[in-house]
């Protein structure tokens, strides 16, 4: 798509973003609580050699980096889809009850099945995300379809309610600490085993999102225009919603509730790549992945060996950029 003069050709944007992603990956491999060399990073990925450093990279740091990238891309894309679907620039997966539902489900799972493994927790997080979203949508949809204001209001209410219940359960069953370990948005202890379960699912959904991007662009114009252009809007909306729920649910299962990321990353992508979702979605995937990776790197290095919470870093790093973009006018909405 090189139909605009203002925006760089899309493949150049993607190339730059991809180089940036590669850069963050290498940086994230190099730096951390323990020192490793660039050679170790190379060996850990491309050879079968072993040493303390290489094992540390293979077993701890690399899965964590991949986890960060997957979560960044997922939440970004989930946010982009939600914004397009509701034609509302202020929506992120958190606001639509997704993450609150997943957190509540997580709490219930920890209470009912204290020994649940990752897979079971993930399934319940999905179901939670799905129920939270259905609750918000059923409250937020009027007879004429999505009403952006209703949706946001319903989202705020349901999120508050579900969060309150989650916290209540946490206090009553004395699992608050356990729960906050999951929901504080840390990537500590991401294992290959977790990634094996969640990774493929996320990747499939990201690919699906890329393929659905054209439909999302048409749908983001207006529902009536989309129908008039021959889109099966009900089916497309269901598919998009399903992709969003899986992506957000998987992210919560992997690292917990990371607010703001899903709101912010699509706006970055929109700012760079323009308002067409065929460009926004791929750009969001790469920017989301690199951003999350970078934030996680900071989280584990600025106060090493202690972890700095990712959520607060996202707010600190993201807000200035975000405010700058808002000042220049949110692309895709004015």
């Amino acid at each position: 798509m090189t139909t605009t003069k203002k925006v760089l050709p899309f493949y150049i944007i993607l190339l730059i973003a991809f180089i940036f992603l590669l850069g963050t990956f290498i940086l994230a491999g190099l730096f951390g609580a323990a020192d490793v060399s660039l050679r170790d990073v190379y060996k850990a990925i491309f050879t079968r050699e072993t040493s303390t450093q290489i094992n540390l990279l293979r077993e701890i740091r690399i899965p964590r980096i991949i986890g960060a990238m997957l979560v960044g891309a997922s939440l970004g894309v989930a946010g982009a889809i939600m914004q397009g679907l509701t034609r509302n620039p202020l929506v992120d997966p958190g606001l639509l009850g997704l993450t609150a539902g997943a957190s509540l489900a997580l709490a219930l799972t920890l209470i009912l099945y204290p020994n649940a493994n990752t897979f079971i927790i993930m399934i319940f997080c999905f179901l939670g995300a799905l129920s939270g979203t259905i609750l918000v949508l059923s409250l937020g949809i009027s007879k004429r379809g999505f009403s952006p204001y209703r949706l946001v209001l319903a989202g705020v209410c349901v999120t508050t309610l579900l969060t309150a219940i989650t916290e209540g359960l946490g206090i009553h069953f004395r699992i608050s600490k356990h729960l906050s370990m999951w929901t504080s948005g840390g990537l500590v202890g991401t294992t290959w085993k977790q990634l094996q379960v969640i990774g493929p699912l996320i990747i499939i959904c990201l690919i699906l999102a890329v393929f659905l991007a054209r439909e999302l662009t048409i749908l983001s114009l207006s529902e009536e225009v989309a129908i008039g252009l021959g889109q099966k809007t009900a089916r497309i909306k269901m598919l998009l919603l399903l992709v969003t729920v899986i992506l957000a649910g998987a992210s919560v299962a992997l690292v917990g509730n990371i607010a703001f990321l899903g709101l912010m990353i699509p706006h970055f992508a929109r700012y760079i790549a323009g308002p067409d979702y065929r460009r926004i979605i791929p750009t969001t995937i790469i920017i989301g992945a690199s951003f999350m990776c970078l934030v996680d790197l900071l989280g584990r290095t600025i106060n090493a060996p202690y972890e700095t919470p990712v959520v607060s870093l996202i707010a600190i790093m993201g807000l200035p950029f975000f405010l700058l973009i808002m000042r220049k006018g949110v692309k895709g909405w004015s």
Partner: peptide, 17 residues
């Protein structure tokens, strides 16, 4: 083809797009 009543458009979109 149907052109609905004053549809919105995402800003930043060019005429050609």
């Amino acid at each position: 083809a149907i052109l609905p009543q004053s549809p919105d458009h995402p800003s930043g979109l060019t005429v050609y797009e």
